[in-house]
Design a protein around this nucleic acid. Structure first.
Length: 115
DNA sequence: AATCTGACTGTTG
DNA sequence: CCAACAGCCAGAT
């Protein structure tokens, strides 16, 4: 069976565990907070194996406020978030309002592309 | 060590 | 809004 996880995994679990109720973080946010801003995919993989009750993996969603996955239980994920007070419009979470504090705004400063 | 996989993300059509 | 493509990352085989 597994031994100790890599530091990255430990950090990710730590970050997710610290997401307060009624808040959400995207995979990219968790990855960034864990020190690997481009490892959103890896975070998803870690979440896939998060069976720990102390890790609120349902508060980790996809970019743009989409629900992302939940081991085939996306409906439960949506229900849990709604129960915590997270507002969901259509299939999207209101990130602007419920995104975990401390998440870097990568959408605030994009300079004009094209010359 | 090489290859495949996937609860991701952003760009392009 | 959805589909296809490409880039990125860690874990499993």
């Amino acid at each position: 069976m597994s031994k100790i996880k890599d530091q990255f995994t430990v950090r990710v679990l730590s970050v997710v565990r610290r997401i307060p109720p009624g808040r959400v973080a995207t995979y990219g946010d968790v990855a960034a907070l864990a020190g690997r801003p481009r490892a959103a995919r890896a975070v998803g993989n870690i979440m896939r194996g998060c069976d720990r009750p102390d890790v609120p993996c349902h508060r980790v969603i996809a970019a743009g406020g989409r629900l992302g996955g939940y081991g085939g239980r996306e409906l439960l994920k949506r229900a849990l978030l709604l129960a915590e007070g997270v507002s969901i419009v259509g299939t999207r979470v209101q990130l602007q309002q419920f995104r975990v504090p401390g998440a870097p705004n990568r959408w605030g400063k994009r300079r004009a592309r094209r010359a």
